[in-house]
Simulated scan of single mutants.
Amino acid sequence: MTMDSVILKTAIRFLLPLLLLSSVFLFLRGHNEPGGGFVGGLVASGAMALYAMTYNAAAARQVVRVSPRVLIGSGLLMSLSSGLVPLFLGRPFLTGLWTSTTITGLGELHLGTPLLFDLGVFCVVTGVTLVFVFSLLEE
């Protein structure tokens, strides 16, 4: 099922990058305010679902470039590893560990295991939703 609207096909070319950028914004904002991996993953998969409905599932799979099942597996692995790292350091499961690094142009960044956990949630939510969407559109 594809939509044969010239307006929608033209609009999705501009909307897809904007929706994916807002997905990244929601993902990065989620540590201090509402948002995070779950909401960011839903927005990203919603953008891809709109693209898939506009063109077709095969075209959307080419845009994603990664199998949704690989996203699910890698997301689960990231989330699990963010919880296991503190165990190796003698701390409780899912304890937040932080490190600071300086990147030229961006300044000092504070990276930690909660960010890795959120990235895993982002990948799992995106992957699961895309599996559903692609399966429904390919039927």
Rank of each mutant, 00 (worst) to 15 (best):
M3K: 07
M3W: 06
D4E: 15
S5G: 03
S5Q: 10
K9N: 13
K9S: 10
K9F: 02
T10H: 14
A11W: 02
I12V: 13
R13C: 08
L15R: 12
L16K: 00
P17H: 06
L18G: 02
L18R: 05
L19N: 09
L19C: 12
L19H: 04
L21H: 04
S23W: 01
S23A: 15
V24Y: 00
L26W: 01
F27C: 11
L28N: 00
R29W: 04
E33S: 07
P34F: 03
G36S: 10
G40T: 06
G40S: 09
V43S: 07
A44N: 04
G46K: 03
A47V: 14
M48H: 02
A49K: 09
A49Y: 09
L50Q: 02
Y51W: 08
Y51K: 05
A52Y: 01
A52W: 07
Y55A: 13
N56E: 15
N56C: 10
A57S: 14
A58D: 12
A60I: 11
R61C: 11
R61A: 13
Q62N: 13
Q62W: 11
V63F: 05
V64S: 02
R65W: 02
V66A: 11
S67E: 12
P68N: 02
R69S: 13
V70W: 12
L71K: 03
